[in-house]
Design a protein around this nucleic acid. Structure first.
Lengths: 345, 345
DNA sequence: CCTTATAATGAAATCGATTTCAAGAGAGAG
DNA sequence: CTCTCTCTTGAAATCGATTTCATTATAAGG
């Protein structure tokens, strides 16, 4: 298909000037005589000339492109984050490569290699890199090698064993707020649903969950902590397991809103109404959380600020400025109707 | 930050060979002596050498990059489509630029310009280009000019006045199936909610809606057709308006699942239960549709095939092969619980 | 052992834009 | 009218990888 595109040489020839002059018109790096300027500009317009960014990047050694590595763009959480980050990146003059790793480590390696070959100026990981230290122990070396080439920033993730730049929501504070809300509503038996043991975004939350319960002298029981996954289906599964526990909690904290949705659905399948019979809270405030009956009380992650800050940090690093190793973004409690006062039943 | 990266010249020097030889090792375009091969390969490994794709693209006049232009990545419909398309593109060796136009025509123009400058080999529009013929009548010229430079393929969209390659779901068939389902359930008064008059994805659906109703000798009333938008909020808004109509339909077709969700919520706010008091069907089968109580009956768009076909068509065009101007992908009726038999009330 | 045929390698041009350095054109002053 | 200084412009090198063409090194055959 290779349609020949117009180059500055074509413009130069038609305008009877040198390519240098055309370049000067393009960049404004030096003065050109008004009539020359006019002539060149007209010819550029005539052909809808657009400079070849690849050639420019080759010379400048910077591509103005950054890579987004995401596990799954269809998760509202990530897509919202991508939207905000990408928007901010464009405003700073950077284009974004999209890489959906789908939690496949090998895939991810391939993506990263391509990103480097395409000379991206930096890489943004949303949700940390797929954690597969067990499966592929060389991933630390791989990442070190990558971080040695281009700046890397993580949003809401971690890479164990690596000294990386991180921008993350204050999940601890979020969990604490949720627990305190539930406790203040008079609940004493509080469960935790979802997540996968070993994955940071769950274990960190569970840790704070236990600590906060302890602070408030509430019971912590391992059978009330049910890991299952991060999807709606795993929420259903976790809820089902909880229903089989003898002394059932009257409120549950879910690792994210998807799990909360699954749990609510499963509870109502068994005739338990939310929040009348059991309170459920989520995490992330994905767009549907507000609209899913009865309206899910959850923690908003402040996507705008997360995305913007991460991009800012990345660009600071790209352009050789200093940046904070870790930035923590405060969260917001979204009060809705899925959590309500404890009632004896 | 411009960390100097290793080039074939560095490799060549250390291996005491010419850059040509290193290039031959890289591409396998010609034989090199086994010992030379070994030496060069070792040095490349030692430095984790990765060839500069920009330099290569400059020479080959193809970048192996394609642009994705989307209105809003946070809409499940688009994110699913992006996921599938991008995945297929990667398998074919193409990387993807992400462009979220957010329905902003000016933004979109800027994106398109950047894509061209970055020398993408082709552009995929998800959902057609923001239709703003009224606002910016020059957009046809702009698009013509773009299509003259690189191949363009639309998924589920149209660009009035332009002769473009399109891959789309068979929306007509989808609407027809929904209407027939509703009619077979005994409903006689059937409304249509959501969309914006003038935007193809609504007007086309409304057209088929009317035709099919007529075929089945059912009444068509303009006050049962309520445009409002494509979001959950607009679904609520449309439902509210419908509630104020004297003779209310007993079933409604919504322009998409978001509108259906909004409508269901608004109906239940007014004590109307779905499907007992009113039936609601959606369109798109976004992931939440299955889980949103009572489970939304809807039309699945076959994202996998849509995305794959579109990417295939685009790559065919890029690589100079022939392609069909229009490909229609069949849809699938997803029977769930939001549509049920008509009951007198 | 020498000649010829083949295999392996190197030099140089290319892709498109930018920039440094040098040269040319024009203007102003003496 | 001529000299000098400034303002524009052009030539050539550069970025990194590839490829054609030419050359050298090796192997085979007499």
């Amino acid at each position: 298909m290779k349609k020949k595109s117009i180059t500055i040489y074509d413009i130069a020839k038609e305008a009877n000037v040198s390519p240098s002059t055309v370049s000067r018109v393009l960049t404004g790096s030096a003065k050109v005589r008004p009539d020359t300027l006019k002539k060149v500009t007209e010819i550029m317009d005539k052909y809808h000339f657009q400079p070849n960014a690849l050639a420019r990047s080759l010379l400048y050694k910077q591509s103005k492109m950054i890579g987004f590595v995401i596990t799954d763009i269809t998760h509202s959480f990530y897509s919202t984050l991508v939207l905000k980050s990408e928007k901010h990146a464009v405003q700073q003059g950077y284009s974004s490569f999209l890489c959906n790793s789908m939690n496949d480590g090998e895939m991810e390696s391939k993506y990263l290699q391509t990103l480097l070959e395409k000379q991206v100026d930096g890489i943004l990981f949303l949700g940390g890199r797929t954690n597969e230290t067990d499966v592929n122990p060389s991933y630390i070396k791989e990442m070190e090698q990558i971080m040695n080439r281009v700046p890397v920033v993580l949003i809401n993730g971690d890479m164990p064993g690596l000294d990386s730049y991180v921008v993350r929501a204050d999940e601890e504070e979020g969990v604490r707020r949720l627990i305190e809300l539930i406790v203040n509503h008079g609940h004493t038996k509080i469960g935790f649903l979802g997540g996968v043991s070993g994955i940071t975004s769950m274990t960190d939350k569970v840790k704070v969950y236990k600590e906060t319960l302890a602070q408030h002298k509430k019971e912590v029981r391992d059978e009330w902590i049910i890991d299952s996954g991060f999807t709606i289906e795993s929420g259903e599964e976790a809820a089902l397991k909880l229903l089989n526990v003898k002394e059932r909690p009257s409120a549950v904290v879910c690792v994210n809103d998807f799990v909360a949705i699954g749990a609510i659905n499963m509870f109502s399948k068994f005739g338990l109404r939310v929040p009348d019979d059991i309170s459920v809270v989520g995490f992330d405030d994905i767009p549907i959380a507000k609209h899913f009956p009865p309206g899910i009380t959850t923690i908003s992650q402040n996507y705008d600020e997360l995305g913007q800050t991460a991009v800012d940090v990345l660009i600071d690093l790209i352009e050789g400025r200093e940046a904070k190793k870790e930035t923590v973004i405060p969260t917001k409690l979204m009060l809705r109707n899925s959590c309500w006062k404890y009632r004896e039943n």
